[in-house]
C-alpha cells in the first residue's frame, strides 16, 4: 500500500458517499444516471468475487464490503426509493454498446481463461466505460448540478491517483498489471474533458456546468 493508492481509494469512497448522501438528503436522483450506477455495482460484484476466497488484508476486505454495500444502496435509492425522480428520458445511453465489447474483450484479453479471471478482467474493462451514461446524460440535459460535478471530480481524482500509484509501484517494486493500467489510463482520459470544464467553470463559483 502506498499513499497514492490510499488517497485514491479514499477519493473513490468520498465520490460514492457524495452521491449517495446527495440522493438521500435531497430525496431525489434528478440528473443522475441510474445506468452508470448499475454498471458500477456490476463492476464491484464481478471484481470482488474473491472476497471469500482470498484474504489480502483487513483494509482490502473492509473496503470491498463497503464499496459493494454503498453501490447497491445507491442503485436501490435510484430505482426503488426515489424512482419517481429518476430522469429516465435523459438516461438513455445504450449500455449494450458498452457490455458487448467489454464482454468480448474480456474473453480475448485476460491473464488466464478461468471464470474468476475473466470476470475480474470484465470488471476492469467495464469500470473504464461505466461513467459514459452519466457523461452522456450531462451532455443531453446540458448541465450538471454542482454535487454531480463534485462526484465526477472525486471519481476522476481516484483514477488519476491510481495512475500515480502504478508509476510508484513500478519503480519501487516492479509491479505492473498491464490490463489494469491500460484500462485505467483509458478511463482517466474520459475524465480529462470533464476536469478541464470543472476547473475552468465550476471552481469559479458557477455552480452549474454545461458540457459542450
Amino acid at each position: 500500500m502506498n499513499i497514492f493508492r490510499l488517497a485514491g481509494d479514499m477519493s473513490h469512497l468520498v465520490a460514492i458517499l457524495i452521491l449517495l448522501l446527495k440522493i438521500w438528503r435531497s430525496r431525489s436522483c434528478a440528473g443522475i444516471s441510474g445506468k452508470s450506477q448499475v454498471l458500477f455495482a456490476l463492476v464491484f460484484t464481478t471484481r470482488y468475487l474473491d472476497l471469500f476466497t482470498s484474504f489480502i488484508s483487513a483494509y482490502n476486505t473492509v473496503m470491498k464490503v463497503v464499496f459493494l454495500a454503498l453501490s447497491y444502496a445507491t442503485v436501490y435509492l435510484i430505482y426503488m426509493r426515489f424512482r419517481n425522480s429518476y430522469d429516465s428520458e435523459n438516461d438513455t445511453f445504450r449500455v449494450e454498446f458498452l457490455l458487448v465489447p467489454v464482454i468480448g474483450l474480456s474473453f480475448l484479453e485476460n491473464y488466464s481463461f478461468t471464470p474468476m479471471e475473466i470476470l475480474w478482467t470484465f470488471s476492469i474493462f467495464l469500470e473504464s466505460v461505466a461513467i459514459m451514461p452519466q457523461l452522456f446524460m450531462i451532455t443531453k440535459t446540458g448541465e450538471a448540478e454542482s454535487i454531480t460535478n463534485h462526484y465526477l471530480f472525486f471519481l476522476g481524482l481516484y483514477r488519476a491517483l491510481y495512475i500515480v500509484n502504478w508509476v510508484w509501484r513500478y519503480h519501487t517494486e516492479g509491479f505492473f498489471d498491464q490490463i489494469a493500467v491500460v484500462s485505467g489510463v483509458v478511463q482517466t482520459i474520459f475524465y480529462c474533458d470533464f476536469f478541464y470544464l470543472y476547473v475552468t467553470r465550476v471552481l469559479r463559483g458557477r455552480g452549474k456546468m454545461s458540457l459542450p
Binding site: D50, I56, S57, W120, F175, D177
Partner: peptide, 10 residues
C-alpha cells in the same frame, strides 16, 4: 498465490 497477491488493489 502470485495471482492473488497481484490482485491486491481494489
Amino acid at each position: 498465490d502470485e495471482e492473488a497477491k497481484a490482485k491486491d488493489e481494489l
